[in-house]
Amino acid sequence: MSTNLTLAKARPRQQDHPLWFLVPALVVLVVFFFVPTLFNFVYAFTDWSSFKSAINFAGIDNFTSLFSNGTLLNSLKVTLVYAVLVALFQNAFGLGLALLLERDTRVNRAVRVAFFIPVIMSALAVGYIFQALLKPDGALNGILGALTGADVAIPWLGDTTWTIVVVAVVHAWKWMGLSMLIYLAGLKTINEDVLEAARLDGANRWTMFRAIRFPLLAPAVTFNVATALLGSMNGFDIVQATTEGGPGGTTELLNIFIFRTFGQGLFAQATTMSLVLFLLVTILAFPVIRFLRKREDVL
């Protein structure tokens, strides 16, 4: 035993895990994460564009011209509205599905898989499929027409007020399987004794859900709301495939605006916008996660 101890002393941690073992991982981290992020900050203060080869320092020029232009603020507003809508729908759908499919029957298992499939589908493919379904002469209007017996030609993706809701529902539809899975896992962790006690006290299903099960789901809610909210602020693919930011710019997320600006060859400005998006997500992430974690104190 004493020999072992001496050995352990003679070979401190640093020797069996020398720090340079970290180098490969660190190189990957620096090259693919650290440097690009840093460049994202640096290029925002330059005049990098496709029009000339030199890159000069431009101070806060990009920021002033972006904020004096209404398009950026509009895109920020659209992005926030979109994120909130997606978070609402995705969690409502996910929680609903989890409660419906909670029991481990054979049918439920199969249905869970079915609802999870959209999560692993390509977002662009989902977008294009919904774009075809939601056209004025698309399948959805066809079905509605057959049911009502009248000719239905609702432009689901052509309304300057409601299209953002429709697109948020599509986004939520794609990701609701993931929320469902996490809520299912959350439901499984609830102690059966607690539920048993509630039943003995005569609680009905609704009271059980409202007073016991939902509060105990707090960690799952934290994860789902945070990922849905912050993830959809980085949304691009589904909206690009369905509306490309239209009609009338009402679904132009910041990422679509960035894509458009980059395509114009204004690389520095596009970088500035992605920096703004990064800051926005960061600023929003802290209070949201803090608030949600606070709810977990009941546990």
Binding site: G158, T160, G246, P247, G248, G249, T250, R260, Q264
Partner: peptide, 13 residues
Amino acid sequence: DLYLYLADMIQGT
């Protein structure tokens, strides 16, 4: 992007 802004005009925004 003149075309984009004109399309916005037609959409009423």
